[in-house]
Design a protein around this nucleic acid. Structure first.
Lengths: 227, 227
DNA sequence: CTAAAAAACGAACGTTCGTGCTATTACACA
DNA sequence: TGTGTAATAGCACGAACGTTCGTTTTTTAG
C-alpha cells in the first residue's frame, strides 16, 4: 500500500519525469490550447500510460497550472533574463520588446505566444487557470511599464509620455504581430511591429536616449518613392 | 408553442429556427469558443433536442461555419455599414476604428470580438473553419487599408504613410484593447486604443484631413463617460 | 379535411475525456 | 541481496462529445 498521506515527490526520478512531461505539455498547449492539452494525448506522445502520467498531477487543472508556470520559466529565460543583461533604461526597454518578438518569431513554442493564446482561451472562463494567466501577463505589462519609467528617470525618454499608454501600445504591437504570424504566417508582421515600436521610441527619446537605439534604416517597404 | 407571428410569408419555419439557433450560437461561441460551442449545450439553451438541432446542419463543422458567417453579418451591420454612411476618406476611416471599438466595448458579443477569439483558437488547426476566419479577418484588414488609401487620395493623409503599416498598427490597437478588456475588464483600454489611433491620424493628417477628426481633448486621464 | 413533407424528438452508438482504483515494476538503501 | 517505497501500468467508471436512425409531431399544400 503506497498510501503515505503527506508525500511530496521532490528530488527523485519522478521529478525529472515530471519536468519532461511539462516541457512537452508546453509545446502541445501552445499549439492546441490548454484545454486541447489532453492527458491521453500527452501520454501517447511521451509513451506513457495515462494513469502513470496523471499520477504526477492531482488533476487536470494542476497540470494546466504547472504547464503555465513552465511556460513562464521558458519566457523568463528566453526574454526577460537576456534583456536584463542590457543596461537599465532605454537599452533594456528596447531589448525587452525585441526579445519578445524574437521569442515568438523564433518559434520557441509552435503555437506562437503561449500566453496570448492561453489568455484568449480562458478570458471568459473563471478559475485558477485564468487568474494565473492574468497574473503573469500583468507581470509582463508591469515590466514594460517599469522599463519605460526607468528610461524616463535616466533622462532617455521624455517625461511627457504616459508609461501606461506606451506600454499598452507596445503590448498591442506584439499581440498584433503574433496574431498576423499565427493566422497568416506573415513573417513581415514582426518587422512592422519592430518598426512601430522603434518609431515610437525615437519620437519620445531624448538626445541621449536616441543613441541607445539601433540606427534607422531608411529602406523600409518603400513604395518606389523617387528621390 | 411556436407562434407564427405576423402574416409575413417570409420563409419556411425551418429557416427561422435555423437563424434563431445561429444567433444564440454566436453568443455562446464568442464566450466559450467555437469548439466549446457544443451541440448539446446549444440545444439545452434553446430547449430543443440535440438531434432536432443537428438536423439543421450536416455536421459540427457546418454549424461552426454558419456561426462564423452569422457573426460576420452582425459585424457588418454593427461596424461596417454605419461607417460607410460617413463620407469616404478620413471620416470613414476614423469611424471604422471607432465603431470597432464600440462594437467590442458595447458587449454585442459577451466574449469580446468574435473573430479575435476564433482566430487565436483555430490559428494552428487547419481546415475550412480556419480558412474562413482568416478570410474574414483579411476582409477587415483590407477595408482598413482601403480606407487609408482613400484618405490619401482625398488629400487628407500624407502619402508618405505606408497604408499596410498603418493598418497593422490600428488593428493591433484594437486587438490590444480587446485583450485588455477580456482579461482584466479594463474599460480604459478602449480609451487608450482610441487615443493611440487618433494620435497617429492627427500626426499624418493634412490640414484638410485634420478637420475631419474629433477635437483633441487634452484631459486624457479623465473617463467620466456618463452615457 | 386530408395527405405529403418538413421539422423535431428520443434513444442509442462509438469515442474520448478526466479520474479513480489496484496491481506491478524499478530503484534506494540496508 | 533483500525490502520498502516511489513510479508506472492496467483497467474500469461515468459523463459528454458528435452523429445516426426510426418515430412522432407540426406545418404546409391540394
Amino acid at each position: 500500500m503506497p498510501r503515505t498521506g503527506a508525500a511530496e515527490p521532490v528530488k527523485a526520478k519522478g521529478g525529472r519525469t515530471r519536468q519532461n512531461i511539462l516541457e512537452v505539455a508546453v509545446d502541445i498547449a501552445s499549439a492546441e490550447g490548454l484545454e486541447g492539452l489532453t492527458i491521453g494525448r500527452l501520454a501517447t506522445q511521451l509513451a506513457m500510460s495515462k494513469s502513470g502520467l496523471f499520477a504526477h498531477f492531482g488533476s487536470k487543472e494542476d497540470l494546466q497550472l504547472a504547464t503555465i508556470d513552465t511556460a513562464r520559466s521558458r519566457f523568463i529565460s528566453d526574454v526577460i533574463r537576456p534583456a536584463f543583461e542590457a543596461e537599465i533604461g532605454m537599452a533594456r526597454l528596447w531589448k525587452l520588446c525585441e526579445r519578445w518578438l524574437g521569442h515568438v518569431q523564433g518559434g520557441v513554442c509552435s503555437g506562437g505566444c503561449f500566453f496570448a493564446a492561453a489568455a484568449s482561451e480562458f478570458d471568459s472562463r473563471p478559475g485558477q487557470v485564468r487568474d494565473r494567466i492574468a497574473e503573469i501577463m500583468n507581470e509582463w505589462l508591469g515590466m514594460l511599464r517599469k522599463a519605460i519609467i526607468e528610461s524616463q528617470q535616466a533622462g532617455q525618454i521624455s517625461t511627457d509620455v504616459d508609461p501606461i499608454q506606451l506600454a499598452f501600445e507596445f503590448n498591442s504591437f506584439e499581440l498584433g504581430a503574433n496574431w498576423a504570424f499565427q493566422l497568416y504566417g506573415d513573417q513581415q508582421a514582426f518587422g512592422r511591429a519592430r518598426e512601430a515600436i522603434l518609431e515610437r521610441l525615437r519620437r519620445h527619446a531624448t538626445r541621449s536616449g536616441a543613441t541607445l537605439l539601433p540606427p534607422a534604416d531608411k529602406q523600409r517597404r518603400r513604395v518606389r518613392t523617387k528621390r
